[in-house]
Every structure is written in structure tokens, then in C-alpha cells.
Amino acid sequence: MRLDLDSVSVALGGRPALDHVSMTVHSGQFAALVGPNGSGKSTLLRTVYRARRPDSGTVRLDGHDLWSVPAARTARHIGVLMQEQHTGFEFTVAETVALGRTPHLGLFDRLTRADHEAIDEALHRTGLTAFTGRRVGELSGGERQRVLLARALAQQPRLLVLDEPTNHLDLRHQLDLLELVRDLDVTVLAALHSLDLAAAYADTAAVLQDGRLVACGPPADVLTPETIGEVFGVDATVHHDDGTARFVLRPRCVCPDACHWSCRTRRLSGVGADAD
């Protein structure tokens, strides 16, 4: 499923949160949104999973304006793993994941065999089969994140929207999640904090700054020391070895007396700023 954003703008509290953002994610591709806090990543995602209508511009799924069809219909195609939300109630893992079938069900429909298969498949893929009767509130943060992923998978989406999906996950589960997502036959739009993960898993990296798209393309072309340094306000170096990129980030330090802790320690240990 192809996703197009065409000059999408959103204002939040009178300030532009997204400023004429245009980008395309081709069918089956993984696009990573990268940018500092408040750069508009989540807002962009929200216009795609229909939590916020763009003030202007269009979001198109396979060429059709997303916001011109009923929400229940687009929800059949778009699965979302959003930042964790708490609930006061005690749904079980199975009940929560089953909710992923909601957009596929009419008001009077009961779960069919196909629905149950989708739910079981989602539980299996996320390794939650043994957790079905547990209450979500009793789980660890990482397990809860997997429940939310399972719910999104149970929707059988063709576009998966992920908002900081690796939050709350330990290193191993971060990799597991992204490997799993890449193995699915879906288009992915993910906001990622980790540049390493974006470089490793994304086909496209889109860099946002103050609601504007400042760079978009293959991670190797886009995630350059210059762009990262500019957008995040840090000193960045990129190491390439055996095909993967590693990012080393330091505070941008221009003062002569080394005001940052890391600059002082580096000087003391005799590491020059230009040693890389």
C-alpha cells in the first residue's frame, strides 16, 4: 500500500506543527521519521491514522484521499502502534488484541474463524500466546508494547504506523520488533529515536525539523553528520562498517573552556576532538 503526503500542514495551538510536508512511502517500503522532540513526527503519524485532520494538504492511500472515506474503512488497512496509553480497566491480552478486529466488524457481527485466526497469528508472532489470559495492567512495559503491536497486527493492516515502537523495549526486543515488522508484507511508517535503528532497518529516512521536512531519501544519503548536526544541534560522526552505520553523538561544544562534561573527560584522557 502506497502512502502519499501532499503538502500536509497542521497547526497546534496557533503554531505550525507540520509545514507543507510532502513525502511518499512506496508499497512495501519502510520509512523512518527522524527528528528531535517537537519536530512533528507524532503529528505527522496522527494525520495518517486519522487522529488529526490536516489543516491543509492531503494524505493519500493508494492514491485515494484518506480523509474522504469513513474512518472504519481506512482502519481496516492501517494498523497503529502508538505511544503507550494507560487504561483504568483490566482487559486481558486476548481481549486487547481482539479489539484489533474492530474495524473489520459491523455492529452486529461476531468474531468469525478468520478473525480468530488473525488474532492467534498476531499473538503468535509477538510471542504472546502464553499471555492471553493475563491482564494487560500486570505486564511489564515491554510486554505491553508487544500487546499493542499484536493488536495492530490483528488488524491485518497493509500500512503499519509505529510511533517510537522501541520505547520500553530492551535491546533484544527492539531488534526483534523491527525484524518482525520488516518480515511482514506491509508498508511501514515509523517514528524512530534511534538513528542506528533507522539506518539499519529503513529504506527511507525522512528528517523533520520544526514541522518541515528537511531531508528525505535513503538513510545513507540523508543521515549525514551535517544533517544530523544541524537538526539535532549536536556534533555527529558516522562510522560505516560492514554495511551498517553507527552514529556517535556529542554535545555541540564551541566554548573554549569545555563547558560540557564529555568534552572535559575527553580532553583529560587525551582524545582529540578530531581523532575520528
Binding site: R46, P70, A75, T87, T102, P103
Partner: peptide, 10 residues
């Protein structure tokens, strides 16, 4: 599940 999750589920 909340406003956002509802939206995501149509």
C-alpha cells in the same frame, strides 16, 4: 483504550 487508540481502530 483512549482517543488515539479509538481513532486507530476506526
Amino acid at each position: 483504550l483512549g482517543e488515539e487508540a479509538s481513532a486507530a481502530l476506526g
